[in-house]
Amino acid sequence: MEFEPKILGIACNWCTYTGADLAGTTRLKYPQNLRVVRVMCSSRINPSFIFRAFQLGADGVLVGGCHPGDCHYNTGNLYARRRLAVTKKILDFAGLEPSRFRVEWISASEGNKFAEVVKEFTEHVQILGPQTKFKIAGVS
């Protein structure tokens, strides 16, 4: 059986989540491996969310936010960019594949981009295989 990765999506309410809605209403097809959690802003994302997701069995984490400069709260995603860049470096130095964690800027009108990103990321994680390094033994 083919490996079906579990991917956690954390999407900002104003852009990426609306973009995902658009992808839905325009009947675009994308893999069902993504479980989306909506947050009000990408800067709401505590980096511990990402570590915890990997521990609880996520094979990949996709964070979506507004394009820099387009944040609903003006500057939220600019803080998030710095913060999540550090998270990525930490994952790298700890020895986990940092490419399992991706940040994408997807605006509310980019339903197409959302579908494409999810598709591409799912394929990428599929090739990497199950994430076992950080996963707590026994968590399914």
Partner: peptide
């Protein structure tokens, strides 16, 4: 971490 630059590159991600 409590600062940002608009011109920070997306490359850092």
């Amino acid at each position: 971490m409590v600062d940002f630059r608009v011109e920070d590159s997306d490359k850092i991600l």
